[in-house]
Design a protein around this nucleic acid. Sequence first.
DNA 1: AACCCATACCTCTAAAAATGATGTATGATA
DNA 2: TATCATACATCATTTTTAGAGGTATGGGTT
Lengths: 127, 127
Amino acid sequence: MAFKGDLEALVLGVLQGGSLHGYEIAKRIREVSETALSVGEGQLYPALHRLELEEYIESEWIPQEGKPSRKVYCLTQKGGDFLQEKQKAWEAFAKGVGSILSSVPKPTTSKRTALVQRVRFKALGGR
Amino acid sequence: MAFKGDLEALVLGVLQGGSLHGYEIAKRIREVSETALSVGEGQLYPALHRLELEEYIESEWIPQEGKPSRKVYCLTQKGGDFLQEKQKAWEAFAKGVGSILSSVPKPTTSKRTALVQRVRFKALGGR
DNA sequence: AACCCATACCTCTAAAAATGATGTATGATA
DNA sequence: TATCATACATCATTTTTAGAGGTATGGGTT
């Protein structure tokens, strides 16, 4: 289960906003999510290579003076289409998790009801 | 990254609605999420054992006639508290992923703008 | 001068997790 | 008779993740 290919989707999502290089992609993910998400480089670079192999993104080396060259990635048409699918998959996943996590606890709201439920379970052999 | 312990959270979430046995928990997760989520038994049972070990849930064997006995689990106080934390973590995670995936593509909306962006990237050495 | 930090790419390994198969057992259904 | 649904469980294989390490440059600190 688990939202499959979430990192891939995230990378494509960030690239929607324009072409970026790997190091910056990782920073964006941290910043945009307000540190709720964080991608290790050991995870990001292999992911970028996979995505490029599958032609969801394309890269170009951009030299810099004084600093290491950057490999700038841009989204392909195919990548954009794939991202759309991923967005739908994410929505279904999020809806599913949401509906399970935020399902109202049986005892409607009152502590008293909770107690009754507890006792009932006890009566059935629970503790 | 990835929503850590999502299966654990899901199990606790389902148990909010009342005590259940493993086989039923798996079914609930499938049903409530409208098949968006599915837990393999090879994943669920070890998870239940971990949760019980950590005292987030408690179990009781309930014999049945004709059918295999059931191990019925109920949420503990500690488990309920833990679930609350997990709910918060999920919200932060979902918000993060959501804001990245549904970030408006740079080209405001028109195809023309998209083209301009494309050309601009080209001018910078991209393709 | 020596050191660490930020930038920027990358790989590798050990641990963790997911998948699917296999096992046991019963009753119902086709 | 065979297969499916119930109901528990383990196990091996594969996949994923996290964290460390490696290369290289320039700027700032001690």
